[in-house]
Each structure stands twice: as C-alpha cells, then as structure tokens.
C-alpha cells in the first residue's frame, strides 16, 4: 500500500514537470535535468513515466539519459565531486588531489560513500585551466586546490 502511494507520488511529480514544459519533445533534456535534480538520478520508473507523458519510447528516453554525463541512471551520493582530469589540471598536480580525496572518503573514483553523502568522479575540462587543480562539487567550482584545501572543502558538505 505504502509502495503504491510512493509510485503514485513519483508519477504525479513526473507529470507536473512534463506539464511545466507542455510535454514537448524538444524539452526532454530540461525535463530530465529537473527530475535528475529532484531525485538525484533517473530511475527506470521515472523514465517510463516520462515516456508515457511525452508519448515516446522508453528506449529513446534512456538513450538521452545515458548520453550526458550530468544525468545519472543509477543512484548517486547527495554530493557529487567532479575532479578535473584534463591536461592543465594534470600538469598542476591533479593526482595528489585525487589521492587525498580517495584517502579521506575511503572510496575510489566512480564509487559512492556508504553513507550516501559523496560520489567521487573524474570530469573533463571545466575551464579552470589557469587555476588548476580544480573540481566541481554539485554546481560549485573550486580551484587552486592543494590536498589539504580540497579535503577541507569536502568537509563543509558533511
């Protein structure tokens, strides 16, 4: 019974978001971005509901959802840390930041902490090349990192 009301809630929320964009096909990316924000990821159920509302194939929704690195199809941590791995940040010492973050969080890149607070990922160039190493935590950008500074910043998200 409880489960049923939960799925109904999700279906209602998906419908509300789709309605906001008049269920237009070309608004799919915005719709998915909003739902990704709301639930932290796009579950199979959410994608099926979007397909229903937009009168599209689920496979097409899945195709779009998996194309973009900022859309998740698996549950992620509450905070997503994205460390820039591109050349300028690598020259500036990205590896030491990577080591410090792994040590501190006790996970490897691509993993999520057991308490669900943090996911650790690499990302490609985030345009902070003159002030590397740099990382994004959710929508916030941090730069000129050293191992200690990086860990202090992450701490604030606890």
């Amino acid at each position: 019974m409880k489960l049923e009301s939960q799925t109904q809630n999700i279906a209602r929320a998906v419908k509300r978001v789709c309605d906001e964009y008049h269920s237009r096909r070309e608004k799919l990316l915005q719709i998915l971005e909003e739902l990704n924000e709301l639930y932290g990821y796009l579950s199979e159920y959410v994608m099926k509901e979007v397909a229903k509302n937009l009168d599209m194939q689920v496979s097409e929704i899945y195709g779009v959802a998996t194309f973009y690195s900022f859309l998740n199809t698996k549950p992620k941590g509450k905070n997503i840390i994205r460390l820039c791995q591109t050349v300028s940040c690598e020259l500036a010492g990205k590896q030491r930041i990577a080591n410090a973050l792994e040590n501190e969080l006790g996970i490897r890149f691509g993993e999520t902490t057991p308490d669900g607070m943090f996911s650790l990922e690499y990302t490609n160039c985030i345009g902070m090349c003159n002030q590397g190493p740099a990382m994004l935590i959710n929508d916030d950008v941090y730069y000129n990192l050293d191992p200690e500074k990086a860990v202090d910043i992450v701490e604030k998200y606890h």
């Binding site: 096909r25 070309e26 915005q30 719709i31 971005e33 779009v64 194309f67 973009y68 690195s69 990302t123």
Partner: peptide, 25 residues
C-alpha cells in the same frame, strides 16, 4: 538560456542543435 548536460561533442554545431531539441548530442 538552455543548459547542456555534460557532453563535449555538443560544441559541434549540429550536435548542439540536436541537444537543444532534447536528443542525444
């Protein structure tokens, strides 16, 4: 204002347009 979702290839103009239309870039 239209937000991307993390894909380098969308800087290519026709891929960008596909993305604007809510498709894979």
């Amino acid at each position: 204002i239209h937000l991307g979702a993390g894909a380098y290839v969308c800087g290519e103009e026709t891929a960008l347009i596909e993305s604007l239309e809510g498709k894979r870039g």
